[in-house]
């Protein structure tokens, strides 16, 4: 038996793979709503949808913050997370969120004519901050060498792609009149997500024992059902088919957007749950 055959040992005193259990549903929800809100804002900024931008800001500002605080062990000291941007992606991300909420809010006030215009400067700053929020969580995960599945350059790319896809789909479902422009973009983004998912699994499948164990969890054992039905089926296949054959039908875009969001949330959750720590050493031949 090789290291690969070692079992998942939970919290026992046996040697084996240990499931990551520190970042769970509240953190996955915070990541999901952060990227969804920032993605929606960014796409709305490009398409000049004020309602979309407001919704994006509210989703990030309220839901991401709520789930982050519910995850924290000592929420009353959460402000301290901003103190180490020199080394921590969490700190950098928090600064990004503050900038996103600040510049995004000011941009909206500018658009509504409540404050004087700054000649596009606020648009630029708000867009840049939204891009930071769309990607930093991926960097926070991929920075960790401890969990091999996460330690991949594809994780921040997946954050960006999923975030943009979710943003486009929500906007498409809310404003089907823009379908002519949005449907091709949504199709391309879904295909990007599919390629990223395959690449992520392929890289992990040929990676360290821990990464291989994660792929096994996602595609063959514990989480396979959820991964194939929700992440691949509802999250990619269903929206692609609906958009391809009935892209301008409001009900179809609504169902497609629901599928995309369900797949995206499940991906966020499963990528946390399938993260494993490797056995520190083994005496197996």
């Amino acid at each position: 038996m090789a290291v690969n055959d070692l079992p998942i040992v939970g919290d026992s005193f046996k040697l084996g793979f240990r499931l990551q259990r520190y970042w769970d549903t509240p953190m996955a929800s915070a990541f999901f709503f952060g990227e969804l809100g920032a993605g929606l804002f960014f796409v709305s900024l490009l398409l000049e949808s004020n309602r979309g931008m407001l919704a994006g800001l509210l989703i990030t500002g309220l839901l991401k913050t709520y789930f982050h605080l519910s995850h924290m062990g000592v929420p009353q000291k959460s402000w301290r997370a901003i103190l180490r941007p020199d080394r921590s992606w969490i700190s950098r991300g928090l600064i990004g969120i503050v900038c996103f909420m600040g510049f995004g809010g000011l941009h909206l006030l500018e658009v509504w004519g409540l404050i004087p215009g700054f000649g596009g400067l606020l648009t630029l700053l708000a867009g840049a901050a939204a891009l930071v929020v769309m990607t930093y969580q991926g960097f926070a995960m991929s920075h960790s060498t401890a969990i091999s599945l996460w330690n991949s350059g594809l994780i921040p790319v997946s954050s960006l792609a999923y975030s943009a896809t979710a943003g486009v789909m929500v906007l498409l479902a809310a404003a089907p009149e823009s379908a002519q422009l949005m449907v091709p973009a949504a199709l391309i983004l879904h295909l990007c997500v599919a390629v990223i998912l395959l690449s992520l699994l392929h890289a992990a499948r040929h990676g360290s024992p821990g990464a291989r164990k994660s792929v096994e969890l996602l595609t063959r054992t514990l989480y396979a059902k959820w991964f194939f039905v929700l992440v691949c089926g509802a999250g990619v296949l269903l929206p692609v088919l609906l958009l391809w054959f009935a892209g301008s039908v409001p009900l179809a875009t609504m169902i497609a957007a629901t599928g995309t969001l369900a797949g995206y949330y499940t991906f966020r959750l499963l990528i946390f749950k399938a993260g494993v720590f490797e056995p520190i050493m083994s005496f197996r031949p």
Binding site: Q20, Y22, W23, M27, H71, M72, G73, V74, P75, K77, S78, R80, A81, S88, I90, A140, M141, H143, S144, T145, A146, I147, W150, G275
Partner: peptide, 9 residues
């Protein structure tokens, strides 16, 4: 602050 980033790192 109990964020757990050290735990996953």
């Amino acid at each position: 602050i109990g964020c757990g980033s050290c735990a996953v790192a």
